[in-house]
């Protein structure tokens, strides 16, 4: 799976960073930065929780070709 992000939607809640700091961070404006986009099987639960926790759906999981 791959993580996708729409920075235009991000409001800097930071929930994703709390839950999955290996994939997500915030830049100097407080907006989401993807540290890594690929999610392997072992990481799926953590990354899945991170994207579900976004109040504005600025991040989500997609298939590699999605």
């Amino acid at each position: 799976m791959q993580i996708k992000a729409d920075v235009g939607k991000c409001q800097g809640y930071g929930n994703c960073v709390d839950l999955d700091p290996e994939h997500f961070d915030l830049d100097d404006d407080g907006l989401v930065v993807l540290l890594r986009t690929s999610v392997d099987e072992a990481e799926l639960e953590k990354s899945g929780a991170a994207v579900r926790s976004c109040p504005v759906q600025a991040v989500w999981l997609a298939d590699h070709d999605g």
Binding site: Q11, G12, Y13, G14, N15, L26, G30, R52, S53, P55
Partner: peptide
Amino acid sequence: LVDTPGALHGVPQQKA
């Protein structure tokens, strides 16, 4: 996502 339904789930720019 939250311990109690209705709980605060996130605030914009929380860190800043």
